[in-house]
Design a protein around this nucleic acid. Structure first.
Length: 323
DNA sequence: CACGAGGAAAGCC
DNA sequence: GGCTTTCCTCGTG
């Protein structure tokens, strides 16, 4: 959920995310009560479309001024970074009523897409950090992991110490003012980001509680959660599995690792430091770097799991048994 | 300077 | 004991 400054070349997709996803611009006049059917699932994410559009941009602004981590190059586009285009948001020759209908429907679609992506992000983060999606269930260690993750996303300075000894319940009960007291610099971002997680957990609760009726996109979201649940079980993850996971999510990681030839299992690590950081996060190894990660990859050579492709290239590897 | 190959030892489950 | 993690030497472009 790291948001970057809008790309001047696009009007329909305003907010371009660091990880390749694109948030979609919203028109102010469609917020609040004049929206046709405020979806149950969407209502808790209204903040993403209304007053918080400004917040998102602010976050991206601050990421350029308080740059503590390595920058990721801007999205080079395109095959891995699909653009969410909304036909209703541009100038339209249609009659007002029809236009309104189209706009409303496309807004709904866009909202569903964005909510889906938010859920996917949270699901991915949970897998990476090995924590549950519901902040209320976190212990102190989980809270620290989440903070580390959030710092990483928004390139915030390290604030973990200020939140030591807080578990998830403590964190959830904190107001923005409480956040401000502990971290004047990052309170807004942390509070808002936690709010998204809380909302998502609330949504999940409603979905699994069965009290809401499933429709179209929300079924997809439900499936997402089920997948997340099933993947939370079992053995500690292997590096090759982790790499596969990243490769399966080009939306999120296409800019740090991607397939060169999916059929042959050939992939390229585009940002070695970033992949190593993610691996370190997943395994709780803050000192992880590409030197060590690549050594682990090389251990796979003799096991016949990963090898160098026939034409050896820097940072390019190949799964011996592509799926 | 960043990667790549692989030995060696230690840690962790 | 298997799978890393850490550290290291040496080689390459």
């Amino acid at each position: 959920l790291g948001y970057e400054a809008p790309k001047p070349s696009r009007t329909s997709s305003l907010l371009n995310r660091e990880d390749g996803l694109e948030m979609v611009d919203h028109k102010p006049r469609l917020d609040g009560s004049d929206r046709g059917h405020p979806g149950l699932y969407l209502s808790c994410f209204d903040m993403l479309f209304t007053e918080d559009a400004a917040w998102l941009v602010r976050v991206s602004d601050s990421s350029t001024s308080t740059d503590v981590g390595p920058r990721l190059e801007p999205c080079q586009e395109p095959e891995q970074c699909p653009v969410i285009d909304s036909p209703g948001l541009g100038a339209s020759p249609l009659s007002p009523t029809l236009e309104e209908q189209v706009e409303e429907r496309s807004l709904e679609q866009v909202q569903s897409l964005v909510v889906g992506e938010v859920l996917k992000d949270i699901e991915t983060a949970c897998k990476l950090l090995n924590i549950t999606p519901d902040p209320m269930e976190w212990n102190c260690g989980n809270v620290q992991k989440w903070l580390l993750w959030t710092e990483h996303l928004y390139r915030l300075p390290q604030v973990g110490k200020a939140f030591q000894d807080l578990d998830g319940k403590d964190l959830c009960s904190m107001s923005e003012e409480d956040f401000r007291q502990r971290s004047p610099q990052c309170s807004e971002t942390l509070h808002a980001h936690l709010d998204i997680w809380k909302s998502a957990a609330w949504m999940k609760e409603r979905c699994s509680g069965g009290e809401t009726r499933m429709r179209g996109t929300s079924q997809k979201q439900h499936k997402l959660w089920s997948e997340a649940d099933s993947s939370c079980s079992g053995q500690p993850i292997h590096l090759w599995q982790f790499l596969r996971e990243l490769l399966l999510k080009p939306h999120s990681y296409g800019r740090c690792i991607r397939w060169l030839n999916k059929e042959k299992g050939i992939f390229k690590i585009e940002d070695s430091a970033h992949v190593a950081r993610l691996w370190g996060l997943r395994k709780n190894r803050p000192a992880m770097n590409y030197d060590k990660l690549s050594r682990s990859i090389r251990q796979y050579y003799k096991k016949g799991i990963i090898r160098k492709p026939d034409v050896s290239q820097r940072l390019v590897y190949q799964f011996v048994h592509p799926v």
